[in-house]
């Protein structure tokens, strides 16, 4: 089975452990959300997987092969980095051309088509692009390369709401037409929650959660209703967040709900992923 196996990966920068003994698998044809606060170790992990930096200990295997300095294994993984590693003076169309050289299956027509959809001028040089368009050209390359594992590090950085929406639609469309493993590292949890199947939460260089979104969200629920009714209902429960608006109140609660015990006037919904994330990573 095709997968990326991360075994006991640790990474030390000076006196700081950015990653501590990470064990993780990215399975075939799944969309993962890699979530964590700033400095949690998400980019470090993605950079180690793609051989951009070296782990202090542990190993990464791609389809069973050790990924360190292994062109064959690395050819199956593409990382869209948050930072730009393309030459600043190069035009986007030249970058597409070189992507085709390095990945012979690079879909040039698809890339050009996406550039039109996003309104990206491919005759511009990298240094002439805004933050948003800098993310867009990297997104286009990531969606056009024929690899099994696509890692996206902050893909929507600087994108406006329209472009973010377009990106998520194209990502799903691309995945449906060409199923592969996609890992999205992002801060925009609410937006990504409708796209990802599995969630990995990193905190202080350690894996805090690694399960399906469904499984994670089934660990709690949210309730909405009048402030008095909600206050009454949540008494004695493990509440992770509360929001009030006028006389209405919403609360996120951890634990199982007995649907027969729900008072009238209270609406029960799925747990809010972002609120759960904040609660899990706040302490």
């Amino acid at each position: 089975m095709n997968k990326i196996e991360i075994k006991g990966i640790s990474k030390q920068f000076g006196n700081v452990w950015a990653l501590s003994d990470i064990d993780l698998n990215f399975e075939e044809n799944k969309i993962y959300g890699l979530l964590g606060r700033n400095g949690a170790g998400k980019s470090t992990l993605l950079n180690i997987i793609t051989n951009k930096i070296f782990a202090s200990s542990g190993e990464v295997r791609v389809n069973g092969e050790n990924a360190i300095e292994n062109d064959h294994a690395l050819k199956n993984v593409f990382l869209m980095s948050e930072k730009n590693y393309y030459p600043n003076n190069m035009k986007i169309r030249e970058i597409f051309k070189w992507s085709k050289e390095f990945y012979p299956g690079f879909d040039m027509d698809y890339a050009n088509n996406l550039a039109i959809k996003f309104g990206l001028n491919i005759n511009k040089r990298v240094k002439e692009l805004s933050t948003g368009y800098s993310s867009i050209f990297k997104i286009i390359i990531a969606l056009s390369v024929p690899v099994q594992f696509i890692l996206l590090d902050e893909p929507v950085l600087g994108l406006d709401a329209n472009h973010r929406d377009l990106f998520y639609r194209l990502l799903i469309e691309n995945y449906q037409q060409n199923p592969r493993t996609i890992v999205i590292s992002t801060h925009l949890i609410e937006e990504v929650s409708n796209v990802i199947e599995d969630i990995i939460i990193i905190k202080d260089g350690k894996i805090l959660k690694n399960e399906s979104v469904e499984e994670l969200l089934s660990k709690g629920y949210s309730v909405a209703g009048s402030a008095a009714a909600i206050d009454d209902f949540i008494t004695g429960k493990n509440v992770i967040s509360c929001d009030s608006f006028g006389g209405l109140k919403t609360a996120c609660v951890l634990g199982k709900i007995d649907k027969t015990q729900i008072p009238q006037g209270i609406e029960v919904n799925k747990l809010d992923l972002q609120k759960l994330f904040i609660q899990l990573t706040n302490v």
Binding site: T50, N51, K52, E69, N70, D71, L74, K75, V77, F78, L79, S81, Y85, Y86, P87, W98, S99, F102, Y103, V147
Partner: peptide
């Protein structure tokens, strides 16, 4: 940088 971005190893 360009080579690492395109999954080309240091050996290559």
């Amino acid at each position: 940088k360009m080579f690492l971005q395109n999954s080309i190893s240091r050996k290559t």
